[in-house]
Simulated scan of single mutants.
Amino acid sequence: MALSKRIIKETERLLADPAPGIQATPHEDNLRYFDVVMSGPSQSPFEGGSFKLELFLPDDYPMTAPKVRFLTKIYHPNIDRLGRICLDILKDKWSPALQIRTVLLSIQALLSAPNPDDPLANDVAQHWKDNEKDAINTAKEWTAKYAHE
């Protein structure tokens, strides 16, 4: 399977100059598939956590968005139990001008700023709206329980 120059260039940049707190490593047998490890952003309920994600570049990338999901359990209103992520640039706001790096940085930013008004996990979003302090404590507990090596 031939890789586009763009995918090769983006991969080289990710490896040579990783975004802070994000490590993305392509699989040797499938260079469109990445193992991602993301540190929880400081001053967020996910601080101190190390989250595993998978990122896959579809055949028509960059015309379509990469597929990304969390493999580590996380308590977040925009990430469901299956690890799917509600993020506009992964859906209707995708643009070929965006890159893997941009996507990963946007996901990291989403960890810093959960948006319960555009939820994927409705129960978590409701908890966030009804009692934000308690929801943040639950997110911290889950981070301690599931996102530590």
Rank of each mutant, 00 (worst) to 15 (best):
I85G: 12
A109K: 13
Q43Y: 08
S50P: 11
P45G: 11
K129D: 08
L71W: 00
W94S: 02
E47I: 10
T143A: 10
K133V: 14
A135H: 08
C86A: 14
D118Q: 03
A121D: 04
A144T: 06
I79W: 12
M63V: 07
P114G: 10
L55G: 08
D134I: 07
N137G: 06
Q108F: 00
Q99L: 09
D123P: 10
S95I: 02
F46S: 06
L57D: 10
C86V: 13
K91M: 13
N122Q: 10
P41Q: 09
A109N: 13
Y75H: 07
Q43W: 13
L105E: 03
Y75D: 01
S50Y: 03
A97P: 00
S50K: 04
S50E: 15
P45W: 14
L87E: 05
S39T: 08
P58I: 04
W94V: 01
L105D: 00
L110H: 06
N131C: 09
I89L: 12
A97G: 01
L90G: 10
L71T: 15
S44E: 14
A97S: 09
H76M: 10
D123Q: 04
V124W: 02
Q43T: 10
H127Q: 06
A147T: 10
L71E: 13
I89K: 02
K140S: 13
K133R: 13
W94P: 02
G49A: 15
P114I: 03
Q126Y: 05
P62A: 05
M63I: 07
S39D: 15
K73N: 15
L55C: 05
D130A: 08
L87V: 13
N137D: 15
L105P: 00
G48T: 04
K73E: 14
L53K: 08
R84P: 04
N115D: 15
A144Y: 04
K73Y: 11
F46H: 13
A144Q: 12
T64N: 06
Y61L: 04
M38F: 03
S42A: 10
